[in-house]
Simulated assay, not measured.
Amino acid sequence: MNIKIREYQTADAAQAAEVWNQVVEDGLAFPQEENLTAETGDRFFREQTYTGIAINSEDNKIIGLYILHPNNVGRCGHICNASYAVRRDTRGQHIGEKLVLDCLAMAKEKGFRIMQFNAVVASNTHALHLYERIGFTKLGVIPGGFRMPDGHYEDIIPHYYIL
């Protein structure tokens, strides 16, 4: 698979929303519970500081994406946050790593100084291992910070990375 990451375009809305919704429906990583439509997705992806789209250049399908935006405002506006989504049938092929690395470079280009993840779910071991490998620092544990689809609560582990 040949992966290219580029900026989101409105024409990507339906495919990007489909990939995003797979993560929402899994209920294991994103706090959102509502699916995006092509219309609400387009608005959502365009309102971010940057939305990166991972394309399989062999068939031009969207296989992943990330959103990058400020984590806060004003005196904390130099800290950004991001979320990553990879199409279910392409997970395990290091697409997430490519997305995170591209996102960190883009965050720096956009003038951010720190990347902060507020809620990495403790059972999301693939993400935890990836962030550790890249050099993120864990901030601690928030007990029961994430409600799982079956209603039980799981710990979340905030992280940061100096850009």
Rank of each mutant, 00 (worst) to 15 (best):
E58W: 06
N72F: 11
P149A: 15
Q48N: 00
A127E: 00
I157A: 01
A11T: 11
F146M: 14
P158R: 04
Q9M: 01
N21Y: 04
P70G: 02
V24F: 03
Y160E: 02
T51H: 10
G41M: 04
T51S: 03
R75G: 10
F112I: 06
R91G: 06
E18R: 07
E132I: 05
I157P: 14
I142Q: 00
E39P: 07
V24Y: 00
I142A: 02
H94P: 14
T49H: 03
M1F: 07
E7P: 08
G92K: 14
V86F: 13
F45P: 07
K108S: 02
G140M: 09
A107L: 04
A127H: 08
D59K: 05
G151M: 13
H69I: 00
L163H: 06
D26M: 05
N21Q: 05
S57D: 12
H126A: 11
N21D: 08
E154W: 11
G41F: 09
H126W: 05
F146K: 00
D155H: 14
D26T: 09
H94M: 15
F117G: 01
N60H: 04
I142N: 00
R75C: 12
W20M: 10
Q48C: 06
R133P: 00
A29N: 01
N81V: 02
Q9P: 00
P149Y: 13
Y8T: 08
G135A: 04
T137Q: 06
V120M: 01
Y50E: 09
V121Q: 08
M115N: 13
S123K: 09
